[in-house]
Structures are given as structure tokens and as C-alpha cells.
Simulated scan of single mutants.
Amino acid sequence: MNAIEFDKVTLTYGGRRVLSDVSFSIPQGAFIGLLGANGAGKTTMLRAILGLIKPAGGAISVLGKPPTRGNAAIGYMPQARRALGDVGISGLDFVLSAVGGHRWGWPIPSSAEKEAAWKALEAIGATDLARRPLGELSGGERQRILIAQSLIGDPQMLLLDEPLISLDAAHQRAIIELVHEIGERLGIAVLFCSHEINPLLRAVDRVLYLGNGKAAIGSVDEVISGPVLSKLYGTHINVVRVAGRIFVMADDVELESGAHVHDL
């Protein structure tokens, strides 16, 4: 069974057509890098998979069924909010807030809910963060807490929306390795949204690249090529490979440069 299937799907958002007549499938257990420039439709696609946006055309299948809101089979990590670091609650309480919809500390969580939260923290090796306030955690540690929250309920799929934003290279590698290990251990599909391919090169099975309302899926070499990306972007694109890194260029400007703002 495929984890996700899009059959001639058209998505609109704010009156704008974001994706047009897009078809692809993602098998269970695959680690997919979801790529594309700002405004390409990455977050809109994730929202459609979550059942938050209905297609304007075509059909979506998620784990063999139409998308539904609140699907417990999907673990979802939204883009991290800067305000998260200002919250004084502990890592455990934050993870617990996803178990039964609690507002931190009220109502009092049950023993089963506490067990589920600890299980999620143990799954990512973050029990040492359980009692620490979120405001004292580094960007990488906060991302680990958000990943733990997405694992509540033993999901069959993970959707991660830009988990590398604001992280330096070392923390990016740690998050990618963690998510890759979780996906392999649980045998579940991972859709990992990112601005840039280079951090993901050693982890992804395939890439799903969005641009100009279209989508291309395949191996890194198949998709991140001049002809394919030129068609997606609607302009001439050069793909340059240097020392194991990939640079996507348009008119001598690197399209992915400045995609991430790093913590100091």
C-alpha cells in the first residue's frame, strides 16, 4: 500500500492555483525530500494530506483512505514558532499537550497519557529534556521535542514542515539522522520538507520537487537536473555539482542560497 497518492490533484490557496493536475505516489517506508522555492506549495500540499484543504480537482489517498482532519495515523511537525522558546513549560508538558489536547497542566493527564509522552521522548533519546523549560533549550533541542510530539500515537507516516530552519549545519545533520533512523525503525513514510537538498543527500530515497504548479518525483539525479528544473521553474536552470554538493542556479544566482537563517 502506498502511503500517499495524488491523482491529477489541483490545489488552490487564497484564490491562487498552487498545484495543477499533479500526480505521484509515495510508498510506505520511503524517505522523501519535499523541495521547492517559497510559494511553490509545499506547506499547502502538507495541509491537503492532513485533510485541512480540499482539492479543487483530482483525488488524494492517505494510507489507502481519503484525507481526514485529525488523522491519528499521521505525525505532523509544523514549522517551529519562535514564540516556542519563550514558553516556560517543560519538554514533557509540551509533548503531553498533544496526547489528549491538554492545555499545559490542565486537566491533569492520565497515567496512560504520561506513558505515551515518555515513550515518544524515549523514541528520540530525549528523556533528558523532559524536565527542562522550553525557553532554556537550544534550537536543535526544541526541534527534538517537536519531533517527539509528532510521534504520539504511533503514527504510520511523518510530515515534517521545514524542521531545519534556524539550525546550524551540525544540528541539521543531527535532526536528519534522527528522523531517518525513526523512519527506518518504524518502517513508515517520511515527507521531509526543506528549502535545500544538500543536507538531505545522504538520507533521501527520492525527492518530490514542486515548482510553477507542477511536481517532479524521482531520485536526486533524475529530478535535480537542468532540464527537469527548467521545466518546473519556467526558466533556464543550471545544476552544478561541486565536491559532493549541488547548486541550483538561475542567471548565475543560486536559488537555494540564504534559505536558512542559522542560530549563533
Rank of each mutant, 00 (worst) to 15 (best):
F24V: 01
L19W: 00
G41W: 07
S25A: 13
L50K: 07
A48R: 09
S25Q: 14
D21N: 15
G36D: 01
M45Q: 10
V18K: 12
S20Y: 08
V22K: 00
G36L: 03
L34S: 14
A48N: 09
A30T: 06
A56V: 09
T43G: 12
R47F: 14
A40T: 07
Q28T: 07
L19G: 00
M45E: 04
N38H: 15
A56Q: 12
P55S: 12
V22I: 04
G58I: 03
P55K: 14
G29V: 14
T44C: 06
I60N: 05
R47W: 10
A59W: 02
S23R: 10
L46N: 02
F31V: 07
I26P: 00
G57P: 00
G57N: 07
G57T: 03
A37M: 08
L46A: 13
V18Y: 04
L50I: 03
G15P: 05
S23I: 10
A59G: 08
N38R: 13
G36A: 05
A48C: 05
G29K: 08
I32R: 00
G51K: 07
L50P: 01
I53T: 15
N38Q: 15
F31M: 11
I53C: 06
R47Q: 14
V22S: 01
V22D: 00
L34T: 09
R47G: 05
I49C: 02
L50Y: 06
G15V: 02
G51N: 12
R16W: 00
G15L: 06
